[in-house]
């Protein structure tokens, strides 16, 4: 187990970070169960294993900052403060969901939290991040755009166009790469010419870049904090690569035939929640009792979300044509 980066001072922060990661984990486990029971349709991409990234990032992001993400975004949405009930209801396709059942798992939005969407076309959110940042700069607003994307998205032209323009125009974007080593069944070293350490690509665009342990919530938090400081000086974008691993398949439909189970076992030792628990207990920032309390609380929250989703009505058929301009 790797040593964690420098500790944060106060106890309640530890509890918050732990609770957040555990909530995401539990939410995703339950979502997977609901998918198997046919309550959730379409594609379902779980964030299990990657919880430290969303949690670390959102713990320092300001409320005015924008977030855009991809289709593996339940964790980002939860950590941003979206109500688990509303997310679960969207996954169930219910009228009470964040998009009234019209978006589904891959398209969560909460404009009130500046959570400007999950995008299901790989790379699609990157140019949009540039646009949000452009508006912030143009309007002299103190906002940063946090853009999540995967290692697979780096190979799309949209990624390169966005990096270049954000740098040329010195826009306040944090490019947050979640490198889980795979894009569907493709291992990063077989698809990215620069190998698995992707952050080097930022050099070509003169964007300062760092690589962090994405299984270490404090390391992610610290890297994001530093990036935010830098971006807020107006000196342009920053690139962070968080190294991580998805413990489940690409989506629920993926039998995961392309990787060795020994690789997963190796990464399970880096489980961001278990690692953090050990440290928190050792440093006495949390007691066993408190841990159990968090566990129970998270469980209750997710159960309540399921109940809410279950009991919510289907969207009315007469809403079919709402929200279409033309």
């Amino acid at each position: 187990m790797k040593v964690l980066s420098k500790p944060v001072a106060d106890k309640s922060k530890y509890m918050d970070l732990l609770r957040q990661m555990m909530l995401i984990r539990r939410f995703e486990e339950k979502a997977s169960e609901m998918y198997m029971r046919g309550k959730i349709g379409g594609f379902l991409h779980l964030y299990i294993g990657e919880e430290a990234i969303a949690t670390g990032v959102m713990s320092v992001l300001g409320p005015d900052d924008y977030v855009v993400s991809h289709y593996r975004e339940h964790g980002h949405a939860l950590a941003r403060g979206m109500d688990p009930k509303v997310i679960m209801a969207e996954l169930f396709g219910k009228a009470t969901g964040s998009s009234g059942g019209k978006g589904g798992s891959m398209h969560l939005f909460d404009a009130s939290r500046n959570f400007m969407g999950g995008y299901a076309i790989v790379g699609g959110q990157l140019p949009i991040a540039v646009g949000l940042a452009l508006a912030a700069k143009y309007r002299r607003e103190d906002r940063t755009v946090l853009c999540f994307f995967g290692d697979g998205a780096v190979n799309e032209g949209e990624f390169h166009e966005s990096m270049n323009l954000a740098s040329v125009w010195q826009l306040p974007v944090i490019f947050m790469l979640e490198n889980n080593l795979y894009g569907m069944g493709s291992y990063v070293e077989r698809t990215h010419a620069g190998g698995k350490d992707i952050y080097h690509v930022a050099d070509a665009y003169k964007i300062p870049a760092a690589q962090v342990d994405g299984m270490d919530v404090l390391a992610v938090r610290e890297a994001t904090e530093e990036a935010l400081k830098r971006v807020r000086t107006g000196s342009g974008p920053v690139f962070i690569e968080a190294m991580t691993y998805r413990f489940r398949g690409h989506s629920m439909a993926d039998p995961v035939a392309y990787r060795e189970s020994s690789e997963l076992d190796q990464w399970r030792k880096e489980d961001p929640i278990e690692k953090f628990k050990v440290v928190a207990l050792r440093e006495e920032f949390v007691t066993d009792d408190e841990l159990q309390g968090i566990e129970a609380g998270v469980q209750a929250t997710v159960e309540a979300a399921i109940r809410f989703a279950e009991e919510s009505p289907e969207p009315e058929l007469d809403t079919l044509h709402d929200n279409v301009y033309a």
């Binding site: 349709g41 379409g42 969207e90 396709g93 219910k94 998009s99 059942g101 019209k102 978006g103 589904g104 798992s105 398209h107 289907e314 969207p315 058929l317 809403t319 079919l320 044509h321 279409v324």
Partner: peptide, 15 residues
């Protein structure tokens, strides 16, 4: 129907 495809199953079927 003349709309982007909704996710919800009943709405999708209606589309």
């Amino acid at each position: 129907a003349d709309i982007p495809m909704p996710y919800s199953r009943p709405l999708e079927l209606a589309t």
